[in-house]
């Protein structure tokens, strides 16, 4: 039950894009079409889960025992960058079709602050773990999956709206990003309705 609550909380109540403001760059950059939004969302889901597991292991078995928590930022960003590269190479070899679908999004993910953000939250055990032990692995993985699903959800809804937005007459100065930001603001308002759900 607590795991379901973690997912709901990470996905809807504390949506990473609309409530925490992480991962805004890909949110604004890639969300022109629903199809690409799904692709980006899946790539993030994949990398975020993987990155959370690896950074959790590094935090628990290297940084904490050695007492060098201050190396966290350096270590995590290197791990994520290396991980993304590796995923890219492996996907290319093993599943060319999946690589075709996700490949172009992977380089963009290294600088996606949502990934590093979740890794740091999990590493410090400061995410909302619904009463479970925040320093153990399973709640962390569930939290990462919930967050990524929330990212995907926001991205897909946003892309759906923007597809229609393209056909509307918008004042010159508001075209493009400003209009998209206004839409994001209205979406954030809507997502505020979820608060207090868990």
């Amino acid at each position: 039950m607590a795991y379901i609550l973690i997912i709901i909380s990470a996905m809807l109540v504390n949506n990473i894009v609309l409530a925490q403001f992480l991962g805004i760059c890909p949110f604004l950059g890639v969300s022109g079409k629903v199809k690409t939004a799904v692709g980006m969302g899946s790539a993030v889901l994949f990398v975020m889960t993987l990155a959370t597991i690896v950074t959790w292991l590094v935090q628990t078995y290297i940084l904490n025992p050695l007492g060098i928590q201050f190396m966290q930022t350096v270590a995590f960003i290197l791990i994520i960058a290396a991980l993304v590269q590796m995923v890219e190479i492996i996907l290319k070899k093993i599943s060319p079709s999946l690589y075709q679908a996700l490949g172009i999004f992977l380089p963009l993910i290294t600088t996606n602050c949502a990934i590093l953000g979740v890794a740091i939250l999990v590493g410090n055990g400061t995410y909302n773990s619904m009463g479970l032990d925040a320093t153990s692995l399973l709640p962390a993985i569930v939290f990462a999956i919930g967050t990524a699903l929330g990212f995907m959800l926001a991205l897909v809804i946003f892309a759906g709206i923007r597809e229609h937005l393209a056909k509307l007459p918008i004042p010159e100065g508001m075209k493009g990003v400003p209009a998209a930001l206004v839409v994001a603001g209205i979406l954030a308002l809507a997502f505020m309705g979820f608060s207090g759900l868990v």
Binding site: S9, V13, N14, N128, M130, G131, S195, G196
Partner: peptide, 8 residues
């Protein structure tokens, strides 16, 4: 307490 509106 974890009963808060926005978290702990």
């Amino acid at each position: 307490t974890d009963k808060g509106f926005g978290g702990d």
